[in-house]
Amino acid sequence: MAAGGDHGSPDSYRSPLASRYASPEMCFVFSDRYKFRTWRQLWLWLAEAEQTLGLPITDEQIQEMKSNLENIDFKMAAEEEKRLRHDVMAHVHTFGHCCPKAAGIIHLGATSCYVGDNTDLIILRNALDLLLPKLARVISRLADFAKERASLPTLGFTHFQPAQLTTVGKRCCLWIQDLCMDLQNLKRVRDDLRFRGVKGTTGTQASFLQLFEGDDHKVEQLDKMVTEKAGFKRAFIITGQTYTRKVDIEVLSVLASLGASVHKICTDIRLLANLKEMEEPFEKQQIGSSAMPYKRNPMRSERCCSLARHLMTLVMDPLQTASVQWFERTLDDSANRRICLAEAFLTADTILNTLQNISEGLVVYPKVIERRIRQELPFMATENIIMAMVKAGGSRQDCHEKIRVLSQQAASVVKQEGGDNDLIERIQVDAYFSPIHSQLDHLLDPSSFTGRASQQVQRFLEEEVYPLLKPYESVMKVKAELCL
């Protein structure tokens, strides 16, 4: 049975990233139509530049190519590739079939990587351009969430054990800070992308030097003109047959890092959902379990974690691919890159769409948070109580021993009897502590235990987050809708 299948058929496997999760716009960027249309555009740009620099290419040939950029006979191309065992030459023939007058000058002087690699770089750039505003929107939604809850005390956790208090907004800023680093890295790697350009079979530009009869300047002009037509500021000066596969490492490393950030955020949300302090959106008709109707599973956060793990592992592909590119190139890269580049971007696209949807509907339960604080705060307040007693004339050592005994009794009630923490009640009825009984409410005010959390939130948002989001103001209103 021949390899390949009808990918629109229910009898043929289709990647869930495309069929179930990723956005239509990201799927289109990695589609065959987008790819092969870009090949034709690159052939047109090459012909236009070659004509401008004096090669015998007519206006009629150029116009014929322009008129057929979208006229792609995919069936013919597939048949040609089956016959020739070469995808680029299959599309040269297919393009030439609908451009008979231009057929002889299509791909003039070029090698397969002229269309293959340059198209990949265009796709990487455009895919990054799709991700950047999506990530900015996630940051914006979380920034709104953090600002609104900047002063809401909550129990902090280290080692997932109760620690000092923080605020809900401050905790959210930990998430935002990681995503801001990801946004900066995505922008950097996007701006650092260079075009492969017009380089020939081993990167020496020998074929173009021959076409222009040894004119170095025209060869350099050709490279520059096509690079500018493709919208790049610069091209690699040095290439082998391909652009260095280190570029793929750079791009997928940034995406993998984004995956790590999203995994951490969504894990926190899942843990908070278990504590009943916070939940992701839950639709009115949504079913959490087929057997347990009360369940409210954090399905979206779980999906993000599941896909983020996949995204983090994909960076190993370009690392290994770059390491086995012998001399000017081997074909070890080809099949692998067809999979890992598309999957990385479709996965990143999915987790950003999902995280935006989550961040637009996060639900906080202040009463649950308050109750958990009441359970733990008495123990945390013991040092403040000791200091207040010393100020009232008591002995630190005597007070410490009193607190120690009462704390152990209260802990026994919590752990052995399943009761509430009654340390404060014990202190309130103990005559030894009568000098500070009137101060206990103040000493137990949760806001006095959150330090500068709310001020940190305000400063972080104003100095770091809002300036970073400013270039994306025009796209901030787009909502994230999930079908599944």
Rank of each mutant, 00 (worst) to 15 (best):
residue 279 E to K: 02
residue 149 R to M: 14
residue 107 H to R: 02
residue 177 Q to W: 15
residue 19 S to E: 14
residue 330 T to Q: 00
residue 76 M to K: 05
residue 426 R to I: 06
residue 183 L to W: 09
residue 381 A to K: 06
residue 55 L to W: 06
residue 421 N to M: 04
residue 145 F to V: 08
residue 383 E to V: 02
residue 97 H to T: 05
residue 142 L to T: 04
residue 230 A to N: 05
residue 39 W to S: 08
residue 67 S to A: 09
residue 202 T to C: 14
residue 445 D to S: 15
residue 60 E to S: 13
residue 258 L to G: 06
residue 138 V to T: 11
residue 234 R to A: 09
residue 60 E to G: 07
residue 286 Q to W: 01
residue 260 A to P: 01
residue 158 T to F: 03
residue 423 L to A: 06
residue 248 D to Y: 01
residue 314 L to A: 08
residue 439 Q to C: 15
residue 349 D to Y: 06
residue 14 R to V: 14
residue 115 V to D: 02
residue 253 S to E: 04
residue 226 V to C: 11
residue 341 L to E: 09
residue 228 E to K: 13
residue 32 D to T: 10
residue 23 S to K: 15
residue 174 L to S: 12
residue 382 T to R: 02
residue 241 Q to T: 03
residue 42 L to H: 00
residue 324 V to K: 01
residue 204 T to C: 11
residue 372 R to P: 10
residue 142 L to K: 09
residue 162 P to H: 04
residue 207 S to K: 05
residue 484 L to P: 10
residue 278 M to P: 00
residue 144 D to H: 09
residue 270 R to I: 09
residue 278 M to H: 00
residue 276 K to L: 06
residue 274 N to R: 03
residue 407 S to Y: 01
residue 284 K to D: 10
residue 474 S to G: 13
residue 409 Q to W: 11
residue 111 T to L: 00
residue 132 L to Q: 08
residue 417 E to F: 08
residue 421 N to E: 09
residue 266 C to D: 00
residue 96 G to N: 07
residue 449 F to P: 02
residue 116 G to E: 02
residue 459 R to Y: 11
residue 64 E to G: 05
residue 137 R to V: 15
residue 124 L to Y: 05
residue 171 R to P: 03
residue 40 R to M: 00
residue 422 D to H: 02
residue 274 N to Q: 13
residue 147 K to Q: 15
residue 224 K to W: 08
residue 399 C to W: 06
residue 257 S to K: 10
residue 223 D to P: 01
residue 72 I to G: 10
residue 449 F to Y: 13
residue 436 I to W: 04
residue 262 V to G: 09
residue 251 V to S: 11
residue 16 P to E: 05
residue 148 E to C: 08
residue 469 L to T: 15
residue 154 T to A: 04
residue 335 A to T: 08
residue 91 H to Q: 11
residue 316 M to P: 07
residue 107 H to L: 03
residue 105 I to H: 01
residue 293 P to T: 00
residue 159 H to Q: 01
residue 129 D to I: 15
residue 156 G to A: 08
residue 259 G to T: 00
residue 185 N to E: 12
residue 345 F to R: 03
residue 46 L to S: 05
residue 360 E to P: 15
residue 213 E to W: 08
residue 266 C to Q: 14
residue 178 D to N: 14
residue 187 K to S: 15
residue 307 L to K: 14
residue 110 A to I: 07
residue 457 V to S: 05
residue 119 T to R: 00
residue 303 R to A: 03
residue 79 E to Y: 15
residue 59 D to A: 07
residue 229 K to V: 02
residue 425 E to L: 12
residue 128 L to Y: 15
residue 206 A to V: 12
residue 174 L to M: 14
residue 261 S to C: 09
residue 323 S to E: 04
residue 235 A to Y: 10
residue 218 K to M: 06
residue 459 R to K: 11
residue 291 A to I: 05
residue 39 W to L: 03
residue 394 G to H: 01
residue 192 D to W: 08
residue 176 I to A: 09
residue 217 H to D: 09
residue 27 C to Q: 08
residue 33 R to L: 10
residue 54 G to W: 03
residue 234 R to L: 06
residue 405 V to D: 13
residue 318 P to R: 00
residue 273 A to M: 05
residue 7 H to N: 13
residue 387 M to D: 05
residue 466 Y to T: 15
residue 137 R to A: 11
residue 232 F to Y: 10
residue 94 T to F: 02
residue 425 E to D: 14
residue 91 H to W: 07
residue 124 L to M: 14
residue 422 D to S: 15
residue 419 G to R: 10
residue 211 L to E: 07
residue 207 S to Q: 04
residue 252 L to G: 11
residue 327 F to G: 08
residue 407 S to F: 01
residue 38 T to K: 13
residue 221 Q to Y: 09
residue 207 S to M: 04
residue 220 E to T: 07
residue 152 L to M: 12
residue 254 V to L: 13
residue 301 S to P: 06
residue 44 L to I: 09
residue 118 N to R: 01
residue 244 T to P: 14
residue 362 L to E: 03
residue 310 H to P: 03
residue 162 P to G: 07
residue 476 M to Y: 13
residue 267 T to L: 05
residue 379 F to D: 01
residue 372 R to F: 06
residue 224 K to L: 13
residue 24 P to C: 15
residue 265 I to M: 12
residue 94 T to I: 12
residue 411 A to T: 09
residue 178 D to Q: 09
residue 443 L to G: 03
residue 408 Q to L: 11
residue 369 I to A: 10
residue 268 D to C: 13
residue 136 A to L: 14
residue 227 T to H: 13
residue 9 S to E: 13
residue 448 S to N: 11
residue 66 K to Y: 08
residue 327 F to Q: 08
residue 357 N to G: 12
residue 31 S to R: 06
residue 459 R to T: 12
residue 132 L to G: 09
residue 189 V to L: 15
residue 155 L to I: 12
residue 194 R to V: 12
residue 406 L to C: 07
residue 356 Q to C: 14
residue 180 C to Y: 09
residue 307 L to S: 05
residue 311 L to T: 04
residue 466 Y to G: 14
residue 236 F to P: 03
residue 79 E to C: 10
residue 169 G to F: 00
residue 274 N to T: 14
residue 266 C to N: 04
